[in-house]
């Protein structure tokens, strides 16, 4: 086997990433009117002092309402592709460390082997003071399939299972889920080694 190349190391996005990466319109994944239940995701990014992180960027990748990703390697023929849904979003935090996405609730997607993964959003967090992105997932409170989800099942309360489950807010016209990302400390979010 030929010797592999070393992948390029990550380097922090720094304090000025808005210049190159801010695309406020990308925080709304429903711009093309996709199928599915519209939802709002909002929360804050918080550091080890409990202070808001005003210079973070969150990227979101998710399946469509049927549980299929807009990607050639997702070959689930029994689920429709939604031509109006890309499944990718990006939102920067504001001065209060808050971020907000408008999207649709994804369907469940297959896990490894015969497992099924509960509906979830894949998140990557970038910030000044972070040399590389952190990966995590957002699951939805009250979702029956959470009980059988392989990742959630591998965690318990002591290991931070609850930090991955977004709380449902007061029912409005559009359901809102609240999801804080705590970088460090007692309520530290579970991050994933992917």
């Amino acid at each position: 086997m030929a010797e592999k190349l070393i992948p390029t190391p990550a380097q922090t996005v720094g304090p000025f990433f808005h210049l190159g990466l801010a695309r406020p319109e990308w925080s709304d994944l429903t711009r093309q009117n996709p199928a599915g239940q519209r939802i709002v995701i909002e929360g804050r990014v918080i550091d080890g002092d409990g202070a808001p992180v005003p210079d973070a960027l969150i990227e979101l990748w998710q399946a469509n309402a049927a549980g299929r990703y807009a990607h050639p390697d997702d070959r689930q023929a029994d689920k429709p592709v939604d031509p109006n849904f890309r499944g990718y979003g990006r939102a920067a935090t504001d001065n209060a460390g808050a971020y907000r996405f408008v999207t649709i609730k994804p369907g469940p997607v297959p896990g490894r082997g015969n497992s099924l993964q509960a509906p979830h959003l894949n998140l990557a967090v970038f910030a000044r003071g972070m040399l590389k992105q952190l990966f995590t997932r957002l699951y939805f409170a009250g979702e029956p399939q959470n009980a059988d989800d392989p990742l959630l099942s591998s965690l318990d309360d002591a290991s931070g299972r609850q930090t991955l489950i977004a709380a449902k807010g007061v029912e409005d016209t559009v359901p809102t889920y609240h999801f804080d990302i705590v970088l460090q400390g007692e309520r530290e979010t579970v991050f994933l080694d992917l």
């Binding site: 080890g48 970088l183 530290e188 979010t189 991050f191």
Partner: peptide, 17 residues
Amino acid sequence: KRAPRRAPVRFEHTLSE
């Protein structure tokens, strides 16, 4: 103040990753 203190949870890749 921005680095997690807990080690990340290793997770084998699925369609999502």
